[in-house]
Write a protein that binds this DNA or RNA. Structure first.
Length: 871
DNA sequence: AGATGGTGTTTTTTT
DNA sequence: AACACCATCT
């Protein structure tokens, strides 16, 4: 090789490297490994997305140039000098691609697959930021499902589906199965629909067709029945021209397996395939990846076996564990430097996860300092647990932190209630992530079903859903008759309805059916003549849905608001897609999108969510509540080692969300599923090196001496003596009557009123405001009454941050507030009362706080104290 | 067709 | 405890 070429190549590497200087050496190695199978084991907080984005950018800008001896053209002395000058100046070389790239990919040659729309969106956004609007925007970054939809929209006809197939969500799926159960007179107690659903799903995951299943000798009568159901189910979806979520993957894999032409098309198109969160992939998804990447074998998967927490929905951790065996010649790169957490937090996570067998093994490290120890608090009750969190948040606010820096994580949604209740009473703004999604709400799904039937007249499932919603005198028996006739003739139900007069058995309902059909036709006409969003509005009106909701009271109002939001989301869709906007396009987007308004990060409130939903997120201060055996790890996992390992991974995920401080808490007693339980501290706590933890406990527990505290191993057997002042309680905290007593008068006995009043609200309106107003109206009066007979609680022994201040204790004689009073709130600090409105024996106080602005709280329930009277 | 009462259930979630 | 679902009644 001529000397000039050698020097040019060396300079080229230097030039390329200079474009990725912000990465650490391991990350850079991942970026420059472009060819062949690559497994990137990315620990929590190790800059995974950054690596992904940079790697794709490298592939598009330079191809496989880095570390290669190949050149795109013969090098001249002038080229060498140009490059040398550019490297020295630190600028970009003009016509970079022609001069030094080696087989760079065009943006559309890259396929990046994620699990959620959010992740896909983030990836796209960062690619755009890095590569520019056009280049970045042209990279295929999508979810497994939407990637499959795109493939199927092009090629579905090759497997006997219309290109315009409908997507059924789990609700539609259930409806189909319910219908099948009814038709075949299957007892859902013998075989719950849920098990049929999961069995069918698992067949599809294993890529077994109904015929494949039928060909096997059934294990028992149940298996034989499931096989029949599966066959019928698949047949019905095909007739309806519909696919469920699993079908999207299943049919795509089948297509690629059986149709060489289609397979080659996509294999040529996608020269580079990247898969995010690979530890969460299922068997079918694995096959999809392997087929798509089968042309070049340039497949890069990124994941963390320690964060595999979705086994219950089909994820198989073996995909990532066996990657190197399945993709021969695979390279593995471990990203172990953590940029997120302090070393105490990280070591706590490491010490927990090392108890798992079945893992690749990886030890995260950080350059950050030790930071605080991991805090572990033992609470007396779930209310006490909530109040402790509020205390700590208050401290942080005083130190200048924001509410949005805090997250409360729990194992299951049922745990959020007591914390919500406490926060709402104390006036702490919070927001719940997860729960019911916008597009899952009944009214939204109903209107979408109208739209779906207009797009696809064969969609009987959606037709059944809306034919008598609102009520228009088409009862269940009529619908069944229509269904039977349709089945007998092998035509869609709508066809029967169009020709009602031909069927004597339908004479009784003929008038209503005709009216319905007329309305349907009218809507079909409208759908092609007026703008989409306007049309959606018309559907709501002309179907009588609006009138129905207006006839209801408050509930109808909320629902109408939701429909208003639906119309505006149609508008957003129409605006974004311009000429290309179609009704079916909108429905598809809806079918594959989770929550429309991904929560805005700027809102200053505490975030509450399950640990599962927290994966991928980070917060300076994290509270993990319910660290108890039976809760976390849950009961279901206790006797199964594999499930225990998954719970442990979940614990690892929880711990690694924290950047600055981590607060774990355990409650000695907890009301859950209608029963007060006393759980042992979570076994995961004892897996954390005690040197990394700092133990505190509720002042309420201070009396129950002996055996508690640090050594939880012993507490199950130790029985403390009676507590002074409570004669007759000989078994201490094991006595449930004693323990059920609400601390500070706050809890068990009367939390229900509030909860029932406010429960739905956070989901519906996304914030505490509704919670509060709902609470005021519905719950308060009765709660106060409940309480009036309860004994006053003993004063806390005083680890409370503001000594002497009540723990949100209802006072028997309500303290009167008036505008101008100076008050002190345990969480928000000092403030001045702006307004006081008496209500149901209590008082809504509006306070201007020095630090956190204006808040409303209930005087008798908030941790509030009057300092000075107004003059 | 709508109200009512009784029953059963209740990890985690995306698409 | 809370809610969804179903069957039965009015």
């Amino acid at each position: 090789m001529p000397e000039i070429t050698q020097e040019y190549i060396a300079l080229r590497d230097q030039y390329i490297e200079s474009k990725f200087t912000r990465l650490n050496p391991v990350q850079r190695q991942a970026v420059f490994t472009t060819e062949g199978p690559l497994l990137i084991l990315a620990g929590a907080g190790s800059g995974k997305t950054t690596v992904l984005v940079n790697r794709i950018a490298n592939i598009i800008r330079f191809g496989s140039a880095h570390g290669s001896k190949e050149l795109p053209r013969t090098v001249t002395q002038q080229d060498l000098e140009d490059l040398r000058a550019t490297v020295q100046s630190g600028r970009d070389l003009p016509r970079e691609t022609a001069y030094l790239a080696v087989r760079p990919a065009r943006p559309w040659n890259v396929l990046a697959i994620t699990f959620t729309n959010k992740a896909a969106g983030e990836l796209k956004e960062r690619l755009r930021a890095m590569l520019g609007e056009t280049m970045g925007g042209d990279v295929n970054a999508s979810t497994f499902h939407s990637a499959c939809v795109r493939i199927l929209r092009r090629d579905a006809e090759r497997i006997g589906f219309p290109k315009s197939f409908t997507i059924y969500d789990s609700d539609d799926q259930q409806r189909v199965l319910k219908q099948i159960y009814k038709d075949k007179m299957i007892d859902d107690k013998f075989l719950p629909i849920k098990s049929a659903v999961s069995q069918i799903s698992s067949y599809k995951d294993k890529l077994m067709s109904p015929e494949d299943v039928a060909a096997e000798t059934p294990r028992d009568t149940k298996a034989a029945l499931i096989s029949k159901i599966y066959t019928t189910y698949a047949g019905r979806l095909k007739t309806a021209g519909a696919m469920d979520f699993d079908d999207l993957i299943y049919h795509t894999v089948r297509l690629l397996q059986t149709d060489a032409e289609a397979r080659e098309y996509y294999q040529n198109k996608f020269r580079y395939v990247v898969v995010d969160e690979y530890q969460d992939t299922s068997i079918a998804q694995f096959h999809l990846v392997r087929l798509l990447a089968g042309g070049t074998n340039n497949v890069c998967v990124v994941g963390d076996d320690d964060q595999s927490i979705y086994k219950f929905r089909g994820a198989t951790i073996e995909n990532i564990l066996n990657f190197e065996q399945v993709f021969t010649g695979a390279k593995t790169i471990r990203l172990e430097q953590n940029y997120r957490s302090t070393s105490n937090i990280l070591n706590a996570a490491n010490s927990v996860i090392k108890n798992n067998t079945g893992r690749k093994g990886k030890t995260l490290w950080t350059e950050k300092g030790d930071g605080d120890k991991v805090h572990h608090y033992t609470a007396a009750s779930e209310q006490d647990e909530a109040s402790h969190i509020a205390d700590v948040i208050g401290e942080h606010l005083r130190e200048g932190a924001h509410l949005r820096d805090h997250a409360v994580l729990y194992r299951m949604n049922a745990q959020s209630n007591p914390i919500e209740t406490y926060f709402a009473r104390a006036g702490i703004p919070y927001r719940i992530v997860g729960g019911q999604r916008f597009f899952d709400r009944k009214e939204v799904k109903d209107i979408n079903s109208y739209l779906a039937v207009i797009v696809n007249p064969r969609d009987d499932v959606r037709l059944r859903r809306i034919i008598n919603e609102p009520a228009r005198k088409i009862g269940a028996s009529t619908v069944d008759k229509v269904g039977e006739l349709a089945a007998r003739q092998g035509v869609p139900m709508l066809q029967i309805i169009a020709d009602v007069r031909q069927y004597p058995e339908l004479t009784r309902a003929a008038a209503s059916l005709e009216k319905f059909y007329e309305m349907y036709r009218e809507l079909c006409d409208l759908s092609v003549t007026i703008p989409l969003d306007e049309f959606a509005g018309e559907v709501i009106k002309k179907t009588g849905y609006e009138a129905m909701l207006k006839a209801q009271k408050e509930e109808g109002e909320t629902r109408l608001e939701n429909l208003g939001q639906l119309v505006s989301s149609v508008k957003t869709y129409a605006d974004q897609n311009g000429e290309d906007a179609t009704l079916s396009g909108f429905l598809e987007e809806v079918a594959l999108i989770s929550d429309l308004d991904s929560y805005d990060q700027d809102a200053d409130s505490v975030t509450m969510m399950t640990i599962h939903s927290a994966k991928g997120l980070e917060f300076p201060y994290v509270f993990v509540v319910g660290m108890e055996d039976g809760i976390f790890p849950g009961d279901m996992a206790r006797y199964n080692e594999e499930d225990m390992e998954e719970e442990r991974r979940l614990c690892y995920v929880a711990i690694t969300r924290a950047k600055k401080e981590l607060y774990l808490s355990t409650s000695r007693s907890r009301l859950i599923f209608g029963q007060t339980r006393r759980n042992l501290p979570s076994c995961f706590l004892s897996e954390i090196d005690p040197g990394l933890m700092e133990e505190t406990q509720s002042p309420e527990l201070a009396y129950s001496a002996g055996g508690f505290g640090a050594g939880y191993g012993t507490y199950s057997t130790s029985v403390p003596g009676g507590r002074s002042g409570y004669s007759g309680v000989s078994r201490g905290y094991l006595n449930s009557e004693y323990n059920a007593r609400p601390r500070g008068g706050f809890g068990a006995g009367y939390s229900s009123g509030f909860a029932s009043g406010g429960h739905d609200s956070p989901h519906y309106n996304g914030g505490r405001h509704t919670v509060q107003s709902a609470g005021f109206g519905a719950g308060y009066g009765s709660r106060t009454n409940h309480h009036s007979g309860a004994p006053a609680a003993p004063a806390g022994a005083g680890t409370s941050t503001l000594a002497g201040m009540q723990n949100a204790t209802p006072k028997k004689q309500a303290v009167q507030y008036a505008a101008g009073d100076l008050v002190e709130h345990r969480v928000f600090g000092r403030g001045k009362v702006l307004k006081a409105t008496p209500i149901a024996g209590d008082c809504i106080v509006e306070i201007q706080f020095d630090r956190v602005g204006v808040k409303k709280t209930m005087a008798n329930y908030a941790p509030l104290k009057k300092i000075t009277e107004a003059e």
